[in-house]
Design a protein around this nucleic acid. Sequence first.
DNA 1: AGAGTGCTACGACTGTTGTAGTAGGTTTTC
DNA 2: GAAAACCTACTACAACAGTCGTAGCACTCT
Lengths: 135, 135
Amino acid sequence: MPPYETTDIPAAELEVLQALWDKSPATVRDVLNELHNLGRQLAYTTVLTFLTRLEQKGFVKSDKSGIAYVYSPKVSRDKVSRSRLEEVLESFYDGAPGPLVLQLMREGKFTKTEIGELQQLIDDLDAKNKRRKRS
Amino acid sequence: MPPYETTDIPAAELEVLQALWDKSPATVRDVLNELHNLGRQLAYTTVLTFLTRLEQKGFVKSDKSGIAYVYSPKVSRDKVSRSRLEEVLESFYDGAPGPLVLQLMREGKFTKTEIGELQQLIDDLDAKNKRRKRS
DNA sequence: AGAGTGCTACGACTGTTGTAGTAGGTTTTC
DNA sequence: GAAAACCTACTACAACAGTCGTAGCACTCT
């Protein structure tokens, strides 16, 4: 197996996986209902197809516990989001998070709490920087 | 036309578009060479196909100036990167940039200059925040 | 003017994605 | 115990993505 699994999941399958992340463990019908709640209309069998494909690709697993199969994610939302972000970073920002962060910051859509945390993080970075310079 | 054009460009076409952003205006051969330089081996006709498809989709334009067609992007790298980022934001961060920025910051891969700029931006945000509060 | 070189148009082919129907088994419900 | 509801397996199929080959035209060099 490759050392770093890329998480290349097509859009429609990802929607299903997202629903599964929210409702896991879940049957096909659970996922279907969740999707319906979110305004996404799909046929039962379509959801089944996607879950099957996701399972083949190793992103979810299933157990036949009672009457129906129960699905759970095998990959975390974090992992996938991270990998998605990484792709954007690689493709457009040359892999460096700095410019991206700066761009987002300039738009300034942050809560007060977040600003506090940001400040804190900057202080830390700053401190680390100083330490490194001195050593 | 829709007010907000989504920039949904498949991976392989995007690679070509990236090369075009770097070398524009460029002929098919220019793009091909650039791709080869980047270690991406594609046939001449493949690149041609992608450029044609990109043109059909309205992402690039071409002028027959001399012997060969010369291609230029019609959509800016910024626009596309923005839209890509937005997708990730929507899918995984509920549309709020805060958590994403915080996550990236925690990994701390920033240059000293960037840290300075970040500090500056935070100060601004902070000031704005205070002003708003006072008013 | 013939040989090579380069360009575009068009077609083609395989795999993947998006979406769903049907068939046939199991479970629940009157 | 028959009918209704559910479940999965399998099949299907159009559109799109990724990749390129061939044919034919234009230009270039000798």
